[in-house]
Simulated scan of single mutants.
Amino acid sequence: MTITFRLSSPGDRAGVLAVLAASRGEGLSAQERAQQGFVQGSFTEEMLARVEAGPGVVVGVDDSGAVVAVAMTMTQTPAGGPPASLGLYMRRHHDDKRWAMYGPVAIASSHRGRGLMRPLLAEVSRRLDGYELAAGFIDADNAKSMAVHTAVGMTVDGYFTVNARRFAVVTFRPGENFSPTE
């Protein structure tokens, strides 16, 4: 089966929302969520439309056209919560850089462990070429996501706290030869 990576279109929104919702880890214990990874926040078609208007949502689609991987990119952080705190962190620590937000990222459970993170991030990196830095945040309790992101070569740049929850800031340089090793 071939997976193609590209920017999403309005016709992909239901698939994007399904992958993100399934990746929230609802119904799992805290330990299971940490081991399997999880996505934060809820998303709507309207939110996706706004994100698509920026650098966009990178999707991986299988031969049938089903969305199996998702990575959002934004140039403006949404107001409130961890995204706003990421923006504050970046202004404090990287005010001299042109940066874009990366994430959330999710891979359908049926396709995890198949090496999709590498080409997904390579497409994100290509789409963000021209930015000096890409930054995302990961809940410090999300052991799986922390392990995957550091294994693919992202840097843990620092941490911030929101509502007593600790988040790691992960960064990479877009446009470079992104050769992660999932």
Rank of each mutant, 00 (worst) to 15 (best):
I3R: 04
I3E: 06
L7D: 11
S8A: 15
S8I: 01
S9Y: 01
P10Q: 00
D12M: 02
D12A: 05
A14Y: 08
G15I: 04
L17Y: 08
A21C: 09
G25I: 10
E26H: 10
E26A: 03
G27F: 13
G27A: 15
G27D: 12
G27M: 13
L28S: 08
L28D: 06
A30N: 03
E32Y: 03
E32Q: 05
R33G: 12
A34E: 12
Q36P: 02
V39P: 05
V39L: 12
Q40V: 09
G41H: 15
S42D: 12
F43Q: 14
F43G: 13
E45S: 15
M47C: 12
L48A: 06
L48Y: 02
A49D: 14
R50F: 06
A53H: 06
G56Q: 09
V58Q: 05
V61M: 04
V61Y: 05
S64K: 02
G65I: 09
G65A: 15
A66D: 14
V70G: 10
A71S: 14
M72S: 03
M72K: 07
T73P: 00
M74G: 00
T75L: 05
T75W: 14
G81L: 13
P82D: 14
A84D: 15
A84W: 08
L86F: 15
L86V: 09
L86T: 10
H93C: 02
H94F: 02
D96M: 08
D96P: 01
K97H: 04
K97W: 07
R98F: 03
R98Q: 13
A100K: 01
M101W: 07
Y102C: 08
P104D: 07
V105P: 01
V105T: 15
I107Y: 14
A108C: 10
S109H: 14
S110R: 01
G113W: 08
R114H: 14
L121K: 12
A122N: 07
E123D: 04
V124A: 11
V124H: 12
S125C: 03
S125M: 04
S125V: 04
R126K: 04
G130T: 08
G130Y: 10
G130M: 03
Y131W: 04
E132N: 02
A134H: 00
A134D: 08
A134S: 12
A135E: 01
A135T: 03
I138N: 12
I138T: 14
D141M: 10
K144E: 01
K144G: 01
A147G: 12
H149C: 05
T150Q: 13
V152F: 14
V152Q: 02
M154T: 09
M154K: 11
T155M: 10
T155S: 11
V156W: 10
D157Y: 05
F160L: 06
T161Y: 11
R166G: 13
F167M: 10
V169A: 14
V170D: 03
V170S: 11
P174G: 08
E176N: 05
N177G: 07
P180M: 11
